[in-house]
Simulated scan of single mutants.
Amino acid sequence: MSIIEKALNKAKDQGREANIATDFSRATIRNTDRPRPISQAIPAFTGNGYEKNTNDISPSEVVEIDWQRLAELGFVTPDDINTQTIEEYRNIKRPLVSNAFGKSSLGIERSNLVLVTSSVPGEGKTFTAINLALSIANERDKNVLLIDADVARPSVSKTLGIKSSPGLIEYLEAPDMDFSDIVLATNMPGLSVVPAGKKHKYSTELLSSNKMSLLAQELSTRYPNRMVIFDSPPLLAATQGEVLAKLVGQVVLVIEAESTLQSMVMESVSKLAPCDVVLAVFNKSQGHMDGSYYAYGQYAH
């Protein structure tokens, strides 16, 4: 029995932590289908965003996030102090950051690339992806690039108040577009955002293209001190999530407590077999659960 199965069974007996409880499990299967390093460089990543050629991103390109609105929606914001949400996301991000930058990163390929997904829509993956990005960027020595890769139902831009802008799809489709053209700096130091871009009938093919593989490789190897978080489509609702999972070193699987069927969770886990690390977050939980519920270990397939 896998650690996720044990956690699900234990959750039924013990109840659930208020708002969010976490169960962390580490996969041992390595992804062997990795793109080779590329010689052409994408623009240098500095400060709040990317440099385009030799010029910094101008102030007119900075996205002004409405922190008051985000706070009302329950998100982590820079002005929050010791709230329950902050503490919860500190617990969630700790293993991710350790795997990306600490001793745990040894043996994890592309450890600084993190995919946030779920089994089905509505489980809170975008809420988790944005909160993780905000929580990590809130650390003084960390930079985060948040990429909306849920190209069929993008939510990151809408949530953050970003107006229609070229994004990931345009970059993958256009042979002459620089990556800097789709990166938006924000009014939070250390946080940049890439919108999903326009809807495209061949979005799956674009996300599974060699250009996307090369981009993931470049983001990982050229900028190893930056965390890149992808908000992905649900694994059982679209094929893009499974495609993207092969490009990252860590995956966060968001599970809606007391709602998502265990069979769905295990089907999603099977699709994540090539991933180095799989972490699970129980979202929308009710009641209280003691700290003994938090687990971090290996699971077998």
Results as ranks from 00 to 15, higher is better:
N48F: 09
D141Q: 07
K125C: 01
L8M: 14
E218R: 15
R26T: 09
K163R: 13
A238I: 12
A41C: 04
P78F: 07
A44T: 12
L191M: 06
A273C: 03
R26C: 03
N210T: 06
N9C: 03
K93S: 04
S165V: 04
Y202S: 08
L146A: 01
S60P: 00
P35Q: 12
V265C: 08
G49M: 10
S220Y: 10
G47L: 09
V62W: 01
A149G: 09
V114E: 02
K199P: 01
V193E: 00
S209F: 03
F282W: 08
A27W: 14
A273M: 07
L247K: 15
P189S: 15
K246R: 15
R34W: 05
A196Y: 05
L279M: 10
R90P: 00
I147N: 01
T260N: 11
I29C: 09
S118L: 08
S285Q: 04
P154F: 07
K271I: 06
S135W: 00
N9G: 06
E205M: 05
R36Q: 10
E72I: 05
G291N: 07
T83E: 07
M188L: 15
K284E: 04
K158E: 15
K12L: 02
S135V: 02
V248I: 01
N55R: 11
R226Q: 08
V193L: 13
E88M: 07
I108N: 06
I136K: 04
N31Q: 13
D290C: 10
A21I: 02
Y50S: 14
A185K: 15
I4C: 09
A196N: 10
A245C: 14
Y171M: 06
D178H: 10
I3E: 13
S203H: 14
V193H: 11
I229F: 00
Q250H: 14
W67P: 01
V151N: 11
